[in-house]
């Protein structure tokens, strides 16, 4: 027990230390790497707190995809390379006095929050009893999936809407942007990608399937498939072209559309929206999950790629 306690203390200290290091790193590349490692350690902490679903999502999306997005942007700012020479440098904070005051205020607020946290009652019963009671009618056996896709399905629908909004805004913002030197993988990694892609696709499908009874589910599966697409983009196996645009639009919206249609479609005959008939609950949830997985994977890849696919010749005339 004491070994575990020491491990927890060490891990928590490392998480906080990495968060501080992230902010203190002078070089932006080092900052992003520190942030990714921070995310990995945080996921490890969540695994210690018996939250494997969250840990998976954090590794895949929070640390993994956010990190990839940050690195891709840094490469853009530095004209295609990740080294610090040339392009924009990440300047250190300039105004010492203001920063000091702000830091002091933030520190005081954090201390107050810490005291309030310590003053909070320990182990107030949450909603686990309600969840346990309702599990038999949920259509799935994994509690987190039941909460995400049934009890609080409305939240999850809106979360997919947030993703849709993000990709719409990104396409809008980057419309007509000149072709950026997109990072590419070297030959060794190309070979690796050729091996890794099919494995990852299978892993994503497995995660989706297993989500009904064990940690995993649409978001983790979508993230893995999204990572596949990102790898495909990096290794130039996938070259977005204008012809892909309708397909991409369809993939972005299919999760939201099917989810919302099912939510409305089950209403009636004494049932409200989102109230799946118990007999069809499992089928409907799997259908929603599959569609949402497609949308998440396509959206995450598109967020990484940035602008809508544009033909190179069109590009020249646009400018």
């Amino acid at each position: 027990m004491t070994v575990l306690l020491a491990f927890d203390l060490l891990l928590a200290a490392s998480i906080v230390g990495l968060a501080a290091a992230t902010l203190l790193m002078r070089d932006a590349f080092a900052m992003i790497v520190a942030f990714i490692v921070f995310g990995m350690l945080m996921a490890l902490g969540w695994a210690r707190l018996v939250a494997p679903d969250v840990a998976l999502a954090e590794v895949a999306i929070g640390a993994g995809l956010s990190g990839a997005l940050l690195l891709r942007t840094l490469a853009h700012l530095r004209g295609g390379s990740l080294s610090a020479q040339g392009g924009a440098s990440v300047s250190a904070p300039a105004n010492g006095a203001t920063q000091g005051v702000n830091a002091l205020l933030a520190g005081l607020a954090t201390c107050a929050l810490g005291l309030a946290y310590l003053g909070a009652p320990q182990n107030v019963p949450g909603l686990e009893a309600h969840v346990a009671d309702a599990m038999p009618e949920s259509g799935v056996t994994h509690p987190v999936t039941a909460v995400l896709l049934n009890f609080r399905a409305y939240d999850t629908l809106m979360e997919v809407v947030v993703l849709l909004a993000a990709v719409i805004v990104v396409w809008q913002v980057e419309r007509g942007l000149a072709e950026t030197p997109a990072p590419a993988l070297g030959t060794v990694y190309q070979g690796f990608a050729r091996v890794a892609l099919p494995v990852a696709v299978i892993a994503g499908g497995y995660l989706l399937w297993i989500g009904a009874e064990a940690p995993g589910g649409a978001f983790q599966a979508g993230a893995v498939l999204g990572a596949v697409a990102v790898l495909g983009l990096l290794s130039r196996h996938v070259r977005p072209a204008p012809a892909h645009r309708p397909l991409a639009r369809g993939a972005f919206v299919v999760g939201t559309a099917v989810f919302a249609l099912v939510a409305l479609g089950v209403a009636g005959a004494g049932r409200v929206a989102f109230e799946y008939p118990p007999a069809q609950a499992k089928t409907l949830i799997l259908l929603i999950e599959a569609m949402v997985t497609i949308s998440i994977a396509a959206t995450l890849a598109a967020l990484f790629h940035g602008r809508a696919p544009v033909a190179v010749s069109r590009e020249e005339t646009d400018r």
Partner: peptide
Amino acid sequence: TVPLGGWGAPLGI
């Protein structure tokens, strides 16, 4: 009020 999903607060929204 509409208890989305038919669960009702506090479990549902």
